[in-house]
Design a protein around this nucleic acid. Structure first.
Lengths: 146, 146
DNA sequence: ATTGTTTGTAACTACACTGGTTACAGATGA
DNA sequence: TCATCTGTAACCAGTGTAGTTACAAACAAT
């Protein structure tokens, strides 16, 4: 599929920001957790900023902060912020209009796939950044105890 | 995303085969409806054959046929046959294990995304090749009448 | 004001996947 | 025997991702 890992990285970043709500984190620090380049992190953060999920502050002491409450940011919000492509691409070239299937399968699939995308987003909306952080911390606790 | 159109093409092909259950269709004929190269069609058909959804017959008069009943082939079956990649890729490189988020977000997301993939497949299973063919034919009828 | 820090973005590279194409061996029916 | 069709390898162009360097602009601290 060669799909992007932007949803994964976006959720990772927001969870990290939720864990450090008091401070603002630099892209360099965040990149240290994600294990990638700060520019890659800033690119994802740019998409999150356009979706009003984070704010940035330039200059000395600057960095990135969450805008709202982690319990009100859903994974569906993150998905919408970083993945604008449709779920399942249609034909590369338009099919043959002289064939009944070729003529009508495109519109039929477009409608069908839109419904599936809605279901996907509804499912992603069941989790929030707060619940992801809870889960991560629960796993950390379990590991320490064992 | 640069995702593939294999699900679209796979459904298109199976719908075409369902419309012509009496005969076997050549990849050349199918490619004429999909408006692509016969080899591209044979590649998708190969995946559908490995999933036992179609059979092939070489030689003169050969071609491709549906194996089962179109009402028992779901879009989820097609998805499983042609798209083996996971829905949302995780990190390119493993995150930093010295950060609690970096250490546990991977396993947390893997589990979470698996649940979403199950929901996606369950939704795709609501439609069949037979229902797609019905829909295409209904659209064709509406267009003729108007 | 000067300095050091950080964002925001452009530009380039390496890599990978998709779809299109040609080519051809093997199977098969007429 | 011959024409047809599958199955697959090989190659190409196009495109998206992630990684990297570079640098202008913004900004806080002194």
């Amino acid at each position: 599929m060669l799909a992007s890992s932007r949803l994964t990285v976006g959720i990772h970043i927001l969870t990290l920001l939720a864990l450090n709500r008091a401070e603002s984190l630099t892209s360099e620090y965040i990149a240290g957790s994600v294990n990638t380049n700060p520019v890659v992190v800033r690119r994802v953060l740019g998409a999150l900023r356009r979706a009003r999920l984070v704010t940035s502050q330039g200059g000395n002491g600057g960095g990135w902060r969450l805008v709202g409450d982690p319990s009100e940011i859903t994974l569906s919000d993150v998905y919408s912020a970083v993945e604008d492509d449709q779920l399942f691409p249609l034909h590369h070239r338009p099919p043959n209009p002289d064939c009944p299937v070729g003529r009508y399968i495109g519109a039929t699939l477009e409608e069908r796939f839109a419904a599936t995308r809605d279901v996907l987003k509804a499912d992603l909306a069941r989790s929030t950044i707060a619940s992801m952080l809870d889960e991560v911390q629960a796993r950390a606790r379990t590991f320490v105890l064992s």
